[in-house]
Design a protein around this nucleic acid. Structure first.
Lengths: 342, 342
DNA sequence: ACGCTTTCTGAAAACGCTTTCACGCATGAA
DNA sequence: TTCATGCGTGAAAGCGTTTTCAGAAAGCGT
């Protein structure tokens, strides 16, 4: 009585083709030459038995998982699909698999879900991984690449991020130079959010460059969130704070600003110019169309994977890759109406 | 001289705690009782050695990958983040890992990237998997759940999708009953797209229900795409086809319709009412705000995972889950301006 | 006190591959 | 002819777990 196994194994193939399992393995991996005639027999056997090698066995034997892990704190957010798209494409091109893990509200360390035991390397987005774990992995030379997060000073981990500061500076300078705005609000993102910190720095540098004194009362909480931005803005207006432009921190917050301004009958851009950051899909559809910064998020994903692959191949990775941002001028800053809408 | 291994293994832990590896394994899996005192010693050893069990070894030995695979044809699209968010959350709650694979422009069968060899079950979105492969997997009793795609008649694979037909009917009935529209255009999605087919059926049923004769010249190509929808609409206008409302198929296409109508100076909703489907994020921001159908995409993802988990546990799964859709009335159909925007 | 469970633990056998090592054989040089 | 060389292949040793099987120890009813 034959043992009825659910799937064919390498031994079945070997037997069927009249060779040893070693030979089958060799045509599978292709890392050792096999006489073409034999190889063909093996391939035929594989096809006939519909043999698919178990990943676990391969991984165990070869000590390579052929998988790249992606850790992020939250799925969702406007940039996320772009990032993932880039990552996925590049991972696939490189012949790896992609394991995704979100640390959203999870007590970490409970069961280390992703790490050296199931991936060859890790892509870490923003602050999705605890510092301890980051250090632990780095200390055992585990390949890591960070995205939108600079590593602790003493750890040399490659980083891919965008030119937040330059982008912000372009934006604010544009408001000052082209539209003569001088009381420009900056709405900060979440506490400790790196992107936000850099954007604020860009904001300040633009002010400095144009000799506009920095006014702390113009820097407020936007949290990169529509609701928060809207209520903050309404509060500012109620408080009677004067301003002629708002750099909302990101486009989501800009939506909230729009709402608050419309509610209080301010005209954009006549009364208040508004600019965002990210160029989310409907920045161009909203009325007036939003002036913002476009960042090559998809490219960030691709580049992160590329650097990680370098690491996996034992090569050096670039320790910092800054992706160039681009000013997208539409209507909300006060520039002429584009011909695209209305 | 001690062998310097990179990571601690179960034997190291066993030795360190003065027990056999079997015992360590037992406290790891928790499937066999171990005296508390011993267990504590083992846990201490694990912590001290920073031991993390290799997934590959566990998988090989236990024949369970503890991983759920997600196959889709394309990353991106407005619904995608929602879907993924639901899936990821539920997968994590269930204690599984998530392996993502896109079949975007890949010659399939080349290297079966995801399947029985590296996952316990598969979530298949729309037509991302070849029929052959689907049949093969199903025939070996591999757990599968489809999303937004009904399976070939002879295969009993659970499906999760939304009530496209009901949604479409609500939409069209609303246009007829509340706004007296009678010449309503339907813009089809891509050839063979199931969602589109059901929506068209809903459109037709609404017409029938109100005794409006079906006019084939009002059913056109929208491809669920802004560009395509825009040019189709312009063509219709150029051809002098009369209509007083457009059901664009989805919200993306509705954007294209907006553009075409504005270009030709038609007023929405006075001249032409427009409705979409999906309630993408900026449906409420565009002007006039778009009347559309909201579908619980995130819930589709969650439910798909739940059904798959049932299958994984050897339980029965519901063969069809239809998620209820909801009419979201805004301005583009002709209803009173909401208080949300202007 | 005696068998009979029951509970915990260790030895050892899988799990299904990759990879090292060695061997047989053909080849070309001496 | 002989010897080194190299190529294709098979045997077998891992890879690091889980799980089965059996045995020791402990509890329990009579």
């Amino acid at each position: 009585m034959k043992k009825t196994r659910k799937y064919a194994t390498i031994s079945d193939v070997a037997e069927h083709a009249g060779v040893s399992i070693a030979t089958v393995s060799r045509v599978l991996t292709g890392n050792t030459p096999v006489i073409e005639e034999t190889a063909e027999r093996v391939r035929a056997a594989i096809a006939e038995l519909r043999f698919v090698p178990r990943t676990a066995a391969r991984t165990l034997a070869s000590r390579k998982t052929n998988t790249i892990g992606l850790i992020l704190s939250e799925i969702g957010g406007a940039f996320f699909p772009h990032l993932l798209k880039g990552i996925e494409a590049e991972v696939r091109t490189a012949g790896y698999e992609l394991l995704i893990h979100s640390t959203q509200g999870v007590r970490q360390h409970q069961h280390r879900a992703v790490g050296e035991h199931n991936t060859d390397g890790l892509l870490v987005f923003t602050s999705s991984l605890e510092l301890d774990e980051l250090k632990r992995l780095h200390s055992m030379n585990f390949p890591l690449v960070l995205m939108h997060q600079t590593p602790p000073a003493d750890l040399n981990i490659p980083v891919i991020t965008i030119e937040n500061k330059d982008g912000a500076e372009m934006l604010v300078s544009h408001l000052i130079e082209k539209h003569g705005r001088r009381r420009i609000v900056y709405m900060q993102g979440p506490e400790g959010h790196e992107d936000s910190q850099w954007r604020e720095r860009g904001y300040r540098e633009a002010l400095e460059k144009h000799n506009i004194p920095f006014d702390p009362s113009l820097v407020v909480k936007g949290e990169f969130d529509e609701e928060q931005a809207s209520s903050t803005m309404q509060q500012m207006i109620a408080d009677g704070i004067e301003f002629d432009a708002v750099f909302a921190g990101d486009d989501d917050a800009a939506m909230g600003v729009y709402r608050a301004l419309k509610l209080t009958s301010r005209i954009i851009p006549d009364d208040v110019a508004v600019v965002g950051f990210d160029d989310i899909q409907f920045a161009r559809y909203i009325s007036p169309a939003l002036t913002t910064i476009r960042a090559p998020i998809e490219e960030v994903g691709r580049e992160a994977v590329r650097q990680l692959i370098h690491l996996l191949n034992g090569q050096q990775a670039q320790s910092l890759v800054l992706m160039r941002t681009e000013l997208v001028i539409r209507e909300s800053c006060g520039c002429a109406l584009s011909d695209h809408h209305q």
